Computed example of a mutant assay.
Amino acid sequence: MSAAIKTCQPPDPNPRTPATKLPPGACDAHCHVFGPANVFPYAPDRSYTPPDAPVADLRRLHGILGVERAVIVQASCHGTDNAAALDAIASSNGAYRGVAIVDGNVTDRELDALNAGGIRGVRFNFVKHLGGTPDLDVFDSVLGRIERLGWHVVLHLDAGDILEHAARIERIRVPFVIDHMGRVQAKNGVEQEPFRRLLDLMRNPLAWVKICGPERVSSAGAPFRDAAPFAAALAEAAPDRTLWGTDFPHPNIAGDMPNDGDLVDLLAAAVPDEAARHRILVDNPTRLYWAD
């Protein structure tokens, strides 16, 4: 392994039982499985190495939190080898779905196999410090090919870059999901221009957003309460197109590692209405991931 590949800190090993009781069918719509590396090796060209976080660790966490379903999101450390995610989905008895990473060489037969394995979307990274804009010809080609499958695309970008990519986003014909509240910075307030752009984008009926990753938004540190107003505003702007997730095991966190029990209670602080939380945790992910 190259010395240039950084190693991520592990998740909090002692997740607290949240004070908030999640409803039956609650879904963690953004989480990862990593390795174990001796079974599912990491990509040689990865920019970081996470600690192994196999599906057994995810199940343990969800048992503590009261989560019954999950969406396994492929991360760049595994590259386009989606085997770990597919294995986790296959072991879930229908409780897991997934989002894959593919490249321009993926065949229609491979897309069909991913679909049969529970994949329901693809993810593209636009975040500059994580590699920046993908090959846009590949992006356009893949989106054109997943339309027949009823999939969506997950856009990992900074809200400040929405304007730069506005024309391409406007052309998207499948549902698209903005990761991590657009990675806005809480210290700049809810009136900041990048967040206003994100709220404007949510007027698009194809636009969805994940109110996860408060540790990537917060300027105050754990328990990241300064991220709650952003989650609240997004949930109000698109109540039927908002998702929530833990982001377990929280790769690439430079500051405070969140306690996942606290993240459940932070959702309740941001969205205190129980019916609204039910939409975010149960109804919305069901429509996007379990429509079949």
Rank of each mutant, 00 (worst) to 15 (best):
N204E: 09
N284K: 07
P41Y: 12
V142T: 10
D135Q: 06
P249A: 11
A270N: 09
V55P: 02
I178W: 11
R123W: 06
T242K: 06
P205T: 10
S2F: 02
D28M: 03
N38A: 12
N125L: 12
D52T: 04
G150P: 09
E191D: 13
D262L: 14
H32Q: 04
G221Q: 15
G189S: 05
P10F: 03
L143E: 05
V99G: 07
V154P: 00
E274H: 13
V99Q: 06
P41E: 12
H32D: 07
V71T: 05
I119K: 08
N259F: 00
A90H: 13
S76D: 15
A222T: 07
P44H: 11
G35E: 08
V271S: 12
A232C: 08
E274M: 09
H129C: 08
Q185N: 10
D45G: 02
R203S: 15
F139D: 10
S2N: 11
Y289D: 03
R120H: 12
P194F: 05
L143K: 08
H180W: 06
D108N: 13
D247I: 07
E68K: 08
D108T: 08
N284I: 01
A159G: 08
R16L: 00
G94F: 11
G25L: 08
A75W: 03
R173Y: 01
S219G: 14
G132I: 08
G118S: 11
P18V: 02
D45I: 05
T246E: 02
D273K: 11
D45L: 10
P251F: 04
A84V: 15
L288I: 04
R183G: 02
S219P: 13
V39C: 11
G132Q: 13
R46L: 03
Q192N: 09
H250C: 04
D240S: 13
T20A: 06
H78T: 14
D140V: 10
P272T: 12
H250S: 03
R123P: 06
A237N: 10
V122C: 13
K128C: 05
F248S: 02
E147F: 03
N82K: 05
D262G: 12
L111S: 04
L114Q: 05
V71I: 15
G104A: 11
R145M: 05
F40L: 01
P134D: 04
G79L: 14
V282G: 00
I64E: 00
G189E: 00
H165V: 01
T80D: 06
V209A: 15
I5C: 04
V177G: 01
P13G: 03
M1C: 02
R197N: 10
L243Q: 07
V67S: 03
L136Y: 03
P175S: 00
L22W: 04
I169C: 01
R203T: 11
H278K: 15
G66K: 01
I172E: 01
R196S: 10
A29I: 03
A37N: 04
V127G: 03
A228F: 14
L143T: 09
V142A: 04
A276K: 14
R173K: 13
L22T: 02
Q74C: 03
L114A: 05
A254E: 15
A166P: 00
